[in-house]
Design a protein around this nucleic acid. Structure first.
Lengths: 348, 348
DNA sequence: CTGAAAGCGCTTACAG
DNA sequence: CTGAAAGCGCTTACAG
């Protein structure tokens, strides 16, 4: 049929109106006479016209896209959250661009490239370790686009964001273990310096105190949220003379790595040690024993972050700049009352 | 400093040259006199100019982005592959847009929206279930952008793509189990109709025959690649009077769901039943017992798909239109020789 | 309710 | 090696 792509010019010619009228009929149909509108729609169908976004964007001085900056695309923790983001953004006509902040040698340069209001109409930042100087408006060559934090944040920076109640999650975990009768509880922490690690560790320490327990340094294991770091912590647990009877892990991945490694050494969960995770990722309910964990509403987190950003992009003032979503404990089978006898005997 | 965004006009004025020269100095510096070039660069620094992609794209009739269409963004299987794609595309100046083909009520409409050469300069399709009519050039209103398949494909359609040797993966699994002495091997299959399910099941059947075994219908379990479907298959295995001593699962997620559910019913892996997975996802090495599986080079898969697409977008002819990446067996501890006695006794 | 015209910020033949 | 000018495909005051 048409040898080349139909433009608004073609539609205007076929409909016998000006391009301005075609544009109006398409964007603000109410403002165009019904007869004209019908003629335009017919011409659109006849020519197979669809709008050229690049041209519209140039004229409207927008990009039509939102960039999500995650620490690492390859980390599946984000996939469900991003799915929520995309689901909220798509109907509003925004495309989601996903980039990572920490991989590759030029990660920093790429990051800076995204901190530009011409690359994206908005930014969702999942990484609290971005240098705050990058986020200081005026310092960078370009103005920043509207920005919201998701999951993580940067302390003291007045940027809107969505997160969960991390400390409360830790409290729920400790309360559950204390309720089971545990008085010797350890903690497998996330990467040092990370805001999530810090909040969860703080909530943990606080909750211990509230339950009359003391935090012991040798029962605090450093991790980095990965399976490997969980397995590594299991080694350290095994080497301990005096062991905790329960361990609260700051992520499910670490909890899975921890439990898996313990089991391979003949340690039984929860008979020899109770384990609580954090996140409630898919696999948590499917390992053996199914993992007791703190549920984090990942899809909703993505949806809310996207909704906040959309308000910002629309120039609205946010009713709540900091949205804190509730967490809940999911009791499964990796936790049980502590063995009445010494906890150290079970290991090989 | 500058109250508004610097444009190429500002640079031209400051450098005392035309905008055409600024453009050339930036895109094809070799063609500009050194003095001029230096003046332009200085002016760029002074004004803080960076190119406006929307304008450049409009003028060059390109979008600067590549769209990856995955069945489901929330599925973590894709995250590592997409990471490989992004890593290859970024240095070449392409942004990666990720969209899903199967979620939401308007999935089909959204998909059609992406099959448009003005939305993206190229497309990577991870979903072999897209209606082939959508992919027939000429049928759709708009010409398709350059397109490659990744992981999945559509039989009989002459579209370049990258995939692994699925049948070979199945063969490796069966050969491993046969080598261990298993003669009663079942299969937990992927979603019916899916090309990966079909290739893996075909490779499985073929390998059984090669080893002198017969495929038994009651030992073939339907799944859909999810943890849940693996757990469901475990129920069916438990209900069997005459059980296979080994099961080859078409995905690690299913294998994990299968093993977890079996263990919760007191079945021991590998003592009572050996299990082989497919994919070698992260968790495979961390569950207990660590899962024997078929490794699929996910990062490389993404890199190669991106590389193919880049060739296509550059107008080159592909030396190999179909890239098939090798797989390998990762032996861990979920497989062992079959018990000499009846295999059915262990279950509760 | 509609049209003529300007302009978003670039790139690229064309001419010199 | 460089500039004047056209044009990518839209949208939007402005005027009627």
């Amino acid at each position: 049929m048409n040898r080349r792509t139909a433009t608004i010019q073609d539609v205007a010619r076929v409909a016998g109106v000006s391009t301005a009228t075609v544009s109006r009929a398409l964007s603000t149909p109410g403002v165009v006479a019904e007869t004209t509108r019908k003629a335009v729609f017919a011409a659109v169908r006849e020519t197979g016209y669809t709008v050229n976004q690049a041209a519209r964007n140039l004229r409207q001085r927008r990009t039509g896209s939102v960039v999500a900056l995650v620490p690492n695309i390859a980390n599946p923790f984000f996939s469900r959250i991003l799915s929520g983001v995309a689901a909220t953004l798509s109907p509003a006509g925004y495309s989601l661009l996903i980039a990572d902040t920490q991989s590759g040698p030029e990660a920093e340069a790429r990051l800076m490239g995204y901190l530009d209001d011409r690359r994206a109409d908005g930014l969702i930042l999942f990484d609290g370790s971005v240098p705050r100087a990058h986020l200081a408006r005026g310092l960078s060559a370009r103005p920043l686009p509207p920005l919201v934090f998701a999951c993580e944040w940067i302390g003291g920076l007045d940027v809107p964001g969505v997160r969960i109640d991390n400390a409360e999650g830790a409290r729920l975990a400790v309360a559950h273990l204390a309720g089971l009768g545990h008085t010797r509880i350890g903690h497998l922490a996330g990467p040092p310096g990370n805001v999530l690690s810090i909040s969860r560790a703080a909530g943990f320490a606080e909750a211990l105190k509230a339950h009359g327990m003391e935090k012991r340094e040798e029962w605090t294991f450093d991790g980095d949220f990965t399976l490997d770091s969980g397995a590594f912590a299991a080694q350290r647990w095994l080497e301990l003379g005096d062991r905790p009877t329960a361990v609260f892990c700051a992520s499910d991945e670490m909890a899975c790595g921890f439990v898996g490694a313990l089991q391979r050494h003949g340690v039984r969960v929860p008979e020899d040690v109770s384990v609580v995770g954090f996140d409630n990722i898919e696999i948590a309910g499917h390992v053996s024993p199914p993992l007791t964990t703190v549920r984090q509403p990942r899809t909703e987190l993505g949806e809310r972050a996207a909704a906040q950003l959309m308000s910002l992009m629309a120039g609205k003032t946010l009713e709540a700049r900091e949205v804190v979503l509730p967490v809940e404990l999911v009791e499964r089978e990796s936790t049980a009352p502590p063995a009445s006898h010494a906890a150290g005997d079970a290991a090989s």
